[in-house]
Design a binder for these strands. Structure first.
Lengths: 223, 223
DNA sequence: GTCTATATAATGATAGAC
DNA sequence: GTCTATCATTATATAGAC
């Protein structure tokens, strides 16, 4: 089913200048944000600025191509890890692999910049969290919530947002080292998070009950 | 101690074009980020672009002036609320006042953009949270943490980060309505947060104990 | 396919009239 | 103090040679 002998394999077509430009763009966008110039990207890819436009039409076109490429890669990684029954969130999965650091950086730049792709990627993270919460509840390690979807959204927002904050507040000279950021994040927030998740934060139920009352839910359940 | 009768009051000097430009800049920066053009700001202030530069030297100078102005205002509000024994975090205090929406928007844009001012403002939020945690522990409503500073940092990061996320992900056509964002934030995250804070998330201590062991702390305390 | 040279547009900043 | 007109720079995008 392959071609005639002696021919190079088909996927070598992904090593053309077009692919090199795309890879360079993902790296540049991730490290320096979407304000990088086309010239910088071209230099990194070892081509001229004109060629970049020639292949992608415009800088916006290049951005779209990068979005598609990154989303596709994330999908691949997700699929792969699902079939291997890996029960970690997409963030954990990605951050655990050093080779995916550029991907992660791009992802966070995209979220930082807003827009449709950012929303889509974030929504995927939310549903990941919800799935793992459901699994935890099923096996009895996670207390059921009155609203699992909201809890998932809250936890995803906290994780993503606090990481976002680390990325933006520490302006690492000239380029974001995502491995470092993730390490810093887990070292800094693991203890307080586990503490509150295990033992709670408040000693009284008054605030929760007051809120439940306020939104019309009877406090204490039905029993 | 005042000047001769008939003169206009001194603080009228804050209503000059310079002040109008500064106010317009704070609003524009807050709504659209720091990429807004000087011309846009000038138009909003009702003056020419040249006058903006004339008063502030450069766009960077204008940015600095806005930073100083906003930090000053935040200080005022903080001082005011401290003397009135208001026990809310700076975020809560600011968000409760509709008239401060532009301030909040600017603050978050500054954090989003990174830099010294952002770090300073964020550190202030962190120490706010730590102070309120200490007060809660003192009056017995908050469970003491093994590391209060880290807990404060974690909670501040979650609150600020999740809000940041809302701001960036919902690209409100042409300008961020911070009142709406804050309302959405509290409606969305209040229940899951209170739930976890009151009842905890995990049913077992295994993860926490394993972590404490890992970092060298004996689980379960000293008794 | 790829490069060099150039057109075009936007923006920050300057100069000088009023 | 304020405006208009203009400059200088930078960046995207185009045109045409090779």
């Amino acid at each position: 089913m392959s071609s005639a002998s002696g021919e190079p394999p088909d996927r070598a077509s992904d090593l053309t200048a077009r692919a090199r430009i795309r890879d360079a763009a993902v790296a540049c966008f991730g490290q320096q944000g979407f304000d990088v110039t086309v010239r910088t990207i071209a230099e990194r890819a070892g081509v001229s600025a004109g060629l970049v436009i020639h292949h992608f039409g415009s800088k916006a076109g290049l951005r779209r191509a990068c979005d598609d490429y990154v989303v596709g890669l994330v999908n691949e990684i997700k699929t792969e890890s699902i079939t291997s029954h890996d029960s970690r969130t997409i963030l954990q999965q990605l951050s655990s692999m050093e080779e995916h650091a550029p991907l992660l950086a791009y992802l966070f730049r995209a979220i930082l910049a807003g827009g449709e792709t950012a929303t889509a990627l974030y929504e995927r993270m939310v549903s990941d969290v919800e799935r793992y919460l459901a699994a935890g509840e099923a096996e009895g390690t996670v207390r059921p919530s009155r609203d699992r979807a909201k809890r998932a959204r809250w936890m995803a927002a906290n994780a993503t947002g606090s990481l976002l904050l680390l990325v933006t507040l520490r302006p690492p000279d000239g380029g974001t080292d995502f491995g470092r950021v993730i390490r810093e994040w887990s070292e800094e927030y693991m203890l307080p998070a586990l503490e509150v998740y295990t033992e709670g934060l408040l000693t009284e139920r008054t605030m929760l009950d007051a809120y439940l009352m306020y939104v019309g839910d009877p406090p204490g359940g039905t029993s």
